[in-house]
Structure formats: structure tokens, C-alpha cells
């Protein structure tokens, strides 16, 4: 388990660095695919099988295909020269380290260590054994359609608005100079 976590974590981080540091936009997109697939593996380790599948289908499938399509459509002139030793890159690296320390320290406050060095937070009714016995997808679906019904419906409204907005924005029309 620890070995899988280590490999997936290193790959996810390398993918993230590749997105930011790649010279070519297409390489950034491919690094993002690596990052997302590694994150799906991590979701599996966290007993979130449904979200791992959604991650692969929606992100690595739909979103990245859209990205690569747009990159292929716009590629001339869309390239940007990035020198890794540029001042903004160095400052960005320092900022990334500082952000990581601060955010990591703050999120670690959410985890309490009990006696014997064991992490104990499991107070909810959805222990992994219970969830897996009932079916992971079934449990998420039941929650989605009972407790979280209103946010779920609002999400469908959001997707509708996004689709209408995309159609409107990409409609060919005279642009105001």
C-alpha cells in the first residue's frame, strides 16, 4: 500500500511540475494526464472507487481531449518561451515551497493523533468495510439522491448554463474592435 502510494504520489507531483515547466503546451497537457491518472490511483487507495472512475472518464477522457483539441486548433503562435532559470520561475519556486508548508501545516491540523500514534477520526457511519459491502457506487448514489439532492440539481443547472455559455461564446459573430 505504501509503495503504491509512493509511486503514485511521485508521478502525480512530476505531472504537476511538468504542467508548469513544460516549454510546449502539448507537453503540459500530457503531463496533466499523467497527474490525473496518478490521482485516480490515489483515489482508489482512499476507497473512492467511483470517483477514481469518474476522474478517468471526465478528466482524462473528456476534459483532456477538449484541451488537446484546442491546442491542436490554436497551436501556431500559442507557444511561449519559458526559461526555467528566469526570475519569475525562481520566485515561483520559492512561493510554491512556502505555500506547501503553510497549506500542509494547516490541513494537518484536521488530523488528530491519538495514543499509540494512531490516527483516529472514523466516527461517521461509512466505514470502508460497510461501504464496500453495500457497494461503493450505490452508497455514493444514495447519498447524492437523498441528502445532497438540492446541490445535485443545482449542478445540472450549472452544466446547462455552461453549455449555453459555450455555444454563445463560440458563435461566429462580428467582434467589436
Amino acid at each position: 500500500m505504501t509503495v503504491i502510494f509512493g509511486i503514485a504520489a511521485v508521478l502525480a507531483f512530476l505531472g504537476a511540475l511538468g504542467v508548469v515547466l513544460s516549454q510546449r503546451t502539448l507537453y503540459s497537457a500530457l503531463s496533466l494526464v499523467l497527474n490525473m491518472v496518478s490521482l485516480a490511483v490515489l483515489f482508489l487507495l482512499l476507497d473512492a472507487q467511483f470517483l477514481a472512475a469518474v476522474q478517468i472518464i471526465v478528466y482524462a477522457g473528456a476534459v483532456m481531449v477538449l484541451f488537446v483539441f484546442i491546442i491542436a486548433l490554436l497551436s501556431p503562435g500559442a507557444e511561449e518561451r519559458v526559461r526555467p532559470l528566469e526570475l519569475r520561475m525562481l520566485l515561483g519556486g520559492v512561493a510554491a515551497v512556502v505555500f506547501t508548508v503553510v497549506i500542509g501545516r494547516l490541513t494537518l491540523n484536521g488530523i488528530t493523533v491519538g495514543p499509540g500514534g494512531r490516527f483516529h477520526g472514523g466516527i461517521g457511519p461509512f466505514a470502508p468495510t460497510v461501504v464496500n459491502a453495500h457497494g461503493q457506487v450505490q452508497t455514493v448514489g444514495e447519498q447524492l439522491f437523498t441528502t445532497y439532492l438540492l446541490p445535485f440539481e443545482v449542478t445540472s443547472l450549472l452544466l446547462l448554463v455552461a453549455a449555453v455559455g459555450a455555444v454563445y461564446l463560440s458563435k461566429r459573430r462580428r467582434l467589436v474592435a
Binding site: 502525480a12 504537476a16 504542467v19 508548469v20 497527474n35 515561483g92 510554491a96 505555500f99 497549506i103 490541513t107
Partner: peptide, 10 residues
Amino acid sequence: AGLFSVGAVG
């Protein structure tokens, strides 16, 4: 936290 920071810097 690390992934978020790299994304923010990006």
C-alpha cells in the same frame, strides 16, 4: 498541498 501550490504558482 504540494499539488495545489504548484498549480497556484503555475
